[in-house]
Nucleic acid binder design. Structure first.
Lengths: 196, 196
DNA sequence: ATGTATAATGAACGAGTGTTCCACTTGAAA
DNA sequence: TTTCAAGTGGAACACTCGTTCATTATACAT
């Protein structure tokens, strides 16, 4: 063996994630990254291999953190739907000021990446968004089990509905960030047609 | 006087728009543009000034075309809401294969541009999206006049609701492009809570 | 036919891109 | 204390970026 006391990898990924999240894949240069994670190219490339690879690790870290936040919301509320609602409130309102961007990093990535130029990263982002959707479906099935939602509904349909509302709302909130309007919209999501 | 038989400016803007729409602002290089509009840098810079300026013209052209499409949909249907629904169907399903991207170019731009690095273009895009929203509000007010919608609803609220649904659905359709699901979703938009 | 103002061309500029390479440093094993 | 594989720093590479500008081509007025 030899030396192994390097930088804190988790911390580097966290910082890289925030930069990619803010500026997007194309808007972030390796020199931007080098500066914000305070590492020289040699170290970054030894640890992550390429800009693409670092991005992949970043977006996975993002999805992971978001998943943990969702679980936290479910744990501190009394029902699946209440947890879901708290989660939406957190990402659209409460965590807004500290977040690098108003929008979901996965959605931003899906929006800017193309099949022609960045197929691999795009597919990664799509897979992660699908992961979120099936997590939503699980939660909704829990809600059907407890009777919070009528059990003759289709969980996948509702999960999809949730997904569209959140994507739409977060993007919309970049143009109109009136907090009361956003809050009202969140309330309306849960009395929307698919739930009846 | 002297020479004035130049290239067709409208045609150049159209081609530039499609490229920006597909690849985004950062993903499109001036050399990409030079190739697709078949002009040398000198001509482009004489006519448009800069990459930013050309983008501004492109996104305005896009908003204009979309506005015309919406009007067309209203003209060939029997009610404001039917027109709106046809419009949504067109942009999400019918025009899909010919379009450079599944998503709305304005939304893509709002998603990728930042206040720090591209404030001017971002503000332009936001203004255009707000323009769409007030157009929606006008249409909804028409629908209230004809009794298609209860007139104790708030037109701005409904316009905002439409906006969020369209943004969410178009983005979502990039991950799941099952046509029957998209169609079902469009139907559901118009029986959604805000309409009752 | 000639002169002239304007448009189009494309080489070139400096700065920035992702990435590589190698000399240097480090710290655990011997 | 010596050894040496692994980690780090930073100059440099080949290329691309947005943009400029001197040159050449063009078409109208005379």
């Amino acid at each position: 063996m030899s030396k192994n006391a390097k930088f804190d990898r988790a911390e580097v990924v966290e910082k890289a994630t925030n930069l990619y999240w803010e500026k997007g894949y194309h808007g972030t240069s390796m020199r931007d990254l080098q500066a914000t994670v305070d590492l020289r190219p040699g170290s970054i490339y030894a640890a992550f291999g390429s800009k693409d690879n670092l991005f992949k690790e970043a977006i996975n870290h993002y999805a992971n953190s978001t998943g943990k936040l969702l679980q936290l919301c479910l744990d501190e509320t009394s029902s699946p739907l209440a947890g879901l609602k708290l989660f939406i409130r957190k990402i659209t309102i409460e965590n807004r000021e500290n977040a690098p961007s108003d929008m979901c990093m996965i959605v931003k990535s899906i929006s800017e990446l193309t099949d022609n130029d960045n197929k691999e990263l795009l597919d990664e982002a799509k897979a992660l968004l699908n992961g979120v959707e099936s997590r939503f479906a699980d939660i909704i099935e829990d809600a059907m089990q407890t009777g919070e939602i009528s059990s003759n509904k289709n969980a996948m349909d509702l999960a999809r509905y949730m997904q569209v509302q959140i994507i739409g709302l977060r993007t919309y909130s970049r143009v109109n960030d009136d907090q009361t309007i956003i809050e009202k919209f969140i309330d309306d999501i849960f009395v929307g047609a698919p739930f009846h």
